[in-house]
Design a protein around this nucleic acid. Sequence first.
DNA 1: GAGTGGTCTAGACCACCAA
DNA 2: TGGTGGTCTAGACCACTCT
Lengths: 246, 246
Amino acid sequence: MTTTRHQAISRHLRERIQDGTYPPGSKIPAIPALMEEFGVARDTVRDAVARLANEGLVTPLQGIGTVVRDTTNVEMVYRPDRPAQIWSAQTGEQEDSDRVVQAGWETAASDITGWLQVPDRTQVLHRIRHQRKGGQIAQIHEQWIPDHVARAIQDATGDDLADINRPLSTDLFSQMRTAGNGPATVTETTTARMPDPDEASVLELPPGVPVLVTWRVTRNGQGQPVETSVFVGAADRLSQSYTVPV
Amino acid sequence: MTTTRHQAISRHLRERIQDGTYPPGSKIPAIPALMEEFGVARDTVRDAVARLANEGLVTPLQGIGTVVRDTTNVEMVYRPDRPAQIWSAQTGEQEDSDRVVQAGWETAASDITGWLQVPDRTQVLHRIRHQRKGGQIAQIHEQWIPDHVARAIQDATGDDLADINRPLSTDLFSQMRTAGNGPATVTETTTARMPDPDEASVLELPPGVPVLVTWRVTRNGQGQPVETSVFVGAADRLSQSYTVPV
DNA sequence: GAGTGGTCTAGACCACCAA
DNA sequence: TGGTGGTCTAGACCACTCT
């Protein structure tokens, strides 16, 4: 159990961050200063700092320094039982904005048809939304709706679900009720993983921040799926809350 | 938007992994081979591989090679409405084992008293469990029970909740019911972050795997908290599932 | 311009694993 | 024993931010 130099340096810095010597928003010493302090080469210091960055404790910024991240600011709460008002902070405020960036019909992949319990190669409506909070995209919402459900909605409401430029007259769950396919239950399954570079770019994630990934299947009163979704959200800005009876 | 060499190498390898050239369980080319192929120095290749490791795509193993991770094996499902049978795979099998590693009374920190809605500096029973699956610890469960609830349970059942060597006669929620503090609802809030080194060690997490963090508050029929918990679970082996009415 | 972090080199030695 | 990844050096140049 020999301790390497960069492990010793990263442990030292981690302890200083946790004991408040370097509070959130402040900067840890610069790389040349740490080289001097520990008598090591540049890349050894960078290895140590990279470890902390991958733990989500710090964010190195070119030309500025390596700043300590505030990890206590997960304020946003997602509640599955409030479809019309999807996100609310503890103050109850609404989400900042919400934009459909892609919509159209396509032949569903096999995992999607499995969740929707429709035959393989069925046509489905595929929509991608970006949900913003505080100027940043906090969650990517990808949604698939079976052909017959989507058409029933359009017939009943006159909206075009594949038009990303015209907003819907009401929220989708209300439209489903109007069309006789009112959602009764949602089943959500959540895990987490590291983002791929595309997701990190869209969500503006610093290194060391994972994404929360949630699969949702919405069913009507007969237990038939009327919609399925995948949510990919920034874990440093998002938490999910559920209250269920025991 | 200049692309650096290690970015080009990591993008190349990422594409090969995603298109199946290097399937899960196989190895990507060795560092000397990549140095030769791209005509770069060792550390440039290591930067590229480190990126993939931090994305959770590969795990470098000393003396063996850099193996591609299988990211499709999140089978375990946690259901909050099944306290006695906390984990079940889709087949419905029970968890492998479950061990209380620490238990005792302590004066609660302010965040805990806030969750439990008891006065500051109250005595609480603090228990830490390690929940195993497939030989590995998949989740760390830390639990706090108010003094009056814990004592009522002990008086009613004769069990010693602070003894880590004697297992309880029944599960804790059943015991609460016996003691007249039957849980009625649980509120769970979930987010994710990267593990600290201790958590990574206990959960045997490879680089690039986050932890799912869930706070739970359990309330009795009168809405009073009878228990609060924090779960820290390996996100590559754990998912949480909720079904709620809309 | 001065200071920050980012990239990259060429070479060395170490720790670990499999045959 | 030979191949793997891990650590570390000393030095160079680049990209970026702030004053």
